[in-house]
Amino acid sequence: MSYQYNGGLVYYETVGCCDQYTTLYSSAGKVLCHPDGGLTGRGDGQCPDFAKTRTEERLVWQDPR
């Protein structure tokens, strides 16, 4: 998925299963944070407002399996 977050375009990558972190990337491909997932489900704590402040959700790619 792509979103607008903190004034810029970001890409949000989900994971398949089980206590793994999701990843949020800048439009340049830099890892910004892990907004959720992990043992607590709250990510790494580096972007705790992502779910509340993201806008302009767009599907970029979906695994058809």
Rank of each mutant, 00 (worst) to 15 (best):
L39D: 12
P35N: 05
R58C: 09
R65G: 13
C33E: 02
Q4P: 15
E56T: 10
E57A: 14
P64A: 15
Y12L: 06
Q62H: 09
P64V: 14
G7N: 02
Y3V: 04
N6S: 09
L59S: 11
G41Q: 09
E13R: 04
L59C: 09
T22I: 05
Y11D: 01
H34I: 05
D63A: 14
K52W: 05
E13W: 00
L59P: 07
G45Q: 09
L39Y: 14
C18Q: 15
V15M: 09
K30W: 10
T53E: 12
G45R: 06
V10H: 00
P64W: 14
T55P: 05
R42D: 13
S26M: 07
C47P: 03
R42V: 10
T40D: 07
G38D: 05
T14V: 11
C47V: 05
D44L: 05
A28W: 08
D36Q: 06
M1Y: 10
L39M: 12
G8M: 05
S2I: 07
C33D: 01
D19S: 12
V10K: 00
D36N: 12
P48T: 04
H34E: 08
S2G: 08
Q4N: 15
G43Q: 02
M1P: 10
S26L: 05
G8Y: 04
P64K: 14
Y11S: 01
S26W: 03
R65T: 14
V60E: 11
V60N: 07
S26N: 06
P48A: 02
G43V: 02
K30P: 02
G43W: 00
T40R: 10
K30R: 11
D63L: 13
E13F: 02
Y11K: 01
Y3M: 06
Q20M: 13
C18W: 15
C18H: 15
Q46C: 12
D36F: 01
D44C: 03
L32D: 00
Q46W: 13
V15T: 12
E57N: 08
E13Q: 06
L24Y: 01
D63S: 14
G29C: 04
P35M: 06
D44E: 03
T22S: 09
Q46A: 15
M1G: 11
G8Q: 12
Y21I: 04
V10E: 00
C17R: 14
C33N: 04
D44N: 05
V31T: 09
D49T: 11
R54N: 04
T55N: 11
T55D: 09
N6D: 11
G43T: 03
D19Q: 14
L59E: 13
G8V: 06
Q4M: 11
L39V: 10
H34P: 00
R42Q: 15
R65W: 15
K30N: 09
C33W: 00
Y5F: 09
V15Y: 11
P64R: 13
